[in-house]
Design a binder for these strands. Sequence first.
DNA 1: GGGCACACTAAGCGCTCGCTCAGCTTCGGC
DNA 2: GCCGAAGCTGAGCGAGCGCTTAGTGTGCCC
Lengths: 207, 207
Amino acid sequence: MSTAEETAGGEVEPWEEVTPDAARRLLVAAVEAFAERGYHATTTRDIAGRAGMSPAALYIHYKTKEELLHRISRIGHDKALDILRTAARREGTATERLADAVSSFVRWHAGRRTTARVVQYELEALGPDARAEILDLRRQVDAEVRGIIQEGVAAGEFDVIDVHGTTLAVLSLCIDVARWFNVNGPRTPEEVGALYADLVLRMVGAK
Amino acid sequence: MSTAEETAGGEVEPWEEVTPDAARRLLVAAVEAFAERGYHATTTRDIAGRAGMSPAALYIHYKTKEELLHRISRIGHDKALDILRTAARREGTATERLADAVSSFVRWHAGRRTTARVVQYELEALGPDARAEILDLRRQVDAEVRGIIQEGVAAGEFDVIDVHGTTLAVLSLCIDVARWFNVNGPRTPEEVGALYADLVLRMVGAK
DNA sequence: GGGCACACTAAGCGCTCGCTCAGCTTCGGC
DNA sequence: GCCGAAGCTGAGCGAGCGCTTAGTGTGCCC
C-alpha cells in the first residue's frame, strides 16, 4: 500500500541499514502502524502481524515498543538533518541554497510522509532520555536553516527583521507538510517542493 | 497551570456555553489531558481525577470518552471558523483582511494552545461520523482563506500563481503554531500573530 | 417531613494491553 | 549424525483499560 510512496523520488530504499531482515520488517511495519493510528493506539500485536510474525518475535529484536519508536525517530532525524546539511553546504548563493534546502526537505516530508509523520509528531511518546537526544538533533536542524537565512541577510540577498522567528516559521511550514500531504491528492512531492521554495523565498524577501 | 494561558488575550472565558458546571469541569480537564498526552494515552480515570470526581461521574455527563473529544473538537472548530469569518467579512482591502485573519487566527492557536492542539491534531481519533462533520467545518475554514486570497488577486493586490496551494500553505503555517508554541517561551501570541501576518502578506506578494 | 429525582461514588466486569517464557524448529560446525 | 545457538511460536501473566451497576447522600416539591 505504501511501497510506492516509500520509494518515491528514486531515493535509495530506506531502512536498508537496519539488519537483520526480520528487524527491518518489524520496523517498517511499526512506521506504517504509528503513522496511521499513532504510537499509543498501535499495539505490538498489530506491528508483529503486519510483519507476518507472532507478537513474541518483536521482543527478540527490540527490548520494548518504545525502542522501535526511538530507532525510527533517530534514523528519520538523521536523514532530515542530512538533507538540510547537503543543501546548506553546497556551492551557490544563499537564495539558491535556501530554495534547495526547502524543496528537498519538503520533498522528503511529502514523498516519505508515513516516516515523517512518525518522526515529527510522535516525539512526546518517547521517554526523557530519548526525547533529549532527538531534541538535540532538532536544534541542529534549526541551526542549519537559520545559518542560511543569516548568510542571506549578511550578503544583502534577504530582507528579514526577525531571523529566529522566520526560521521557526519556515521549518514549521515544511514540517507540517507531513500532516496534510495526501499521496492520492492532486500534487506530487516535487510540485509541493517547488511551490514551497518559492513561498519561502518570498517570506525572506529574496530579490 | 494553564489557566493563565486559557484566558490570554482578554478573550471571553472559554467553554462558558458548556453546562452544567460539572460537565464543563470534565471537559476542561479532558482538553488539558488530551493536549498533554494525546487522546489515546489519556485515561478516563485521569480526566475524572483532574476534575476532582470519580471515574463513574464522567459517564453521567458524556456517553463515552470519544464524545468528550467530539464536543471539544466541534466547539474549537466553530470558534476558529468564527474568527476567520469575522476577519474575512469586515470592511477593508484584501490585504487588510488577510493580515487581520492571519494575526487573529495565529493569536488563537498560540494563546489557546492546549485547545488548538486537541482540535487540530486529534481528529483521527474520532469515529467516521464525527470526523466527517469536523472535516466539513475544515473545508469552510479553507474556503474563507481562499476567498480572501482570490479577491486580493482579482483586485490586483496580490501576486499568486497557485491560489489553492498557497491557501493550503497559509493555513498549514498558522495551524502548526499550536504544535511548537511555548507559553513560557520568548514570544507572546500577539508578537507571533504580527510576525505571521507580515510573512503571509509576503507569501501572497502583497504590495 | 416524606418521597423522589438527581448527582455522584465504590466496586468491579470483561477485555486487551505490553511483555514473558517454555518449547519447537532450523542450521552450521565437527 | 549429534549439538548448541539462534529465531520464532503458542500460551498466558499481571496490569490497567473503558465502562456499568448498585447504592448513597442531598436538596426540592408538596
